[in-house]
Each structure stands twice: as C-alpha cells, then as structure tokens.
Amino acid sequence: MRVIVKLFATFRDGRFKVREFDFPEETCVLDVIQSLNITPEEIAICYRNGKDAKPDTVLHNDDTLALFPPVGGG
C-alpha cells in the first residue's frame, strides 16, 4: 500500500521532506518510524491524515503520516 511520509524540522536532516513509500498491509506507525531510524520518544506530534496517531496505529492505503520533533527553545 501507498503511504506518504512528511517530516518536519530537524527530522528532515539527512532524510527527506516528503516521500512516498510502498509498505505491506497492516503496517503501523511504529514500523514506519523505525524504518526511518526515529524512535517514538523523539516524536512530539504524529499525525495520520491530520489527526493524532499512536505508534500502534495501523496505516491504510493513501494515508499521509506527518512527524514533528519537540521544539522547545526560547
């Protein structure tokens, strides 16, 4: 199935901004982020189609996953 992954801020460093992937059915968020060498602890916000998703959220064909790291400086 087709999943679009969008990375934001420092997650783009050494990776990409947006990329289309072909994953097997039943792939969950954790599978995707592990394939990108990102741990759940590094993620502040994880959106699946514009709504909050958890590591065990199962993805569907044509889903868009957006990942944001925590930004806290002032």
Binding site: A9, T10, E41, I43, A44, I45, P70, V71, G72, G73
Partner: peptide
C-alpha cells in the same frame, strides 16, 4: 497538547 509530549526539545 503541543508541548506536553515528546522528550527533550531539539534546541
């Protein structure tokens, strides 16, 4: 909602 999750800030 925005700052209550995730570990240390990347700053």
């Amino acid at each position: 909602w925005l700052f209550g999750r995730g570990g240390n800030g990347v700053e």
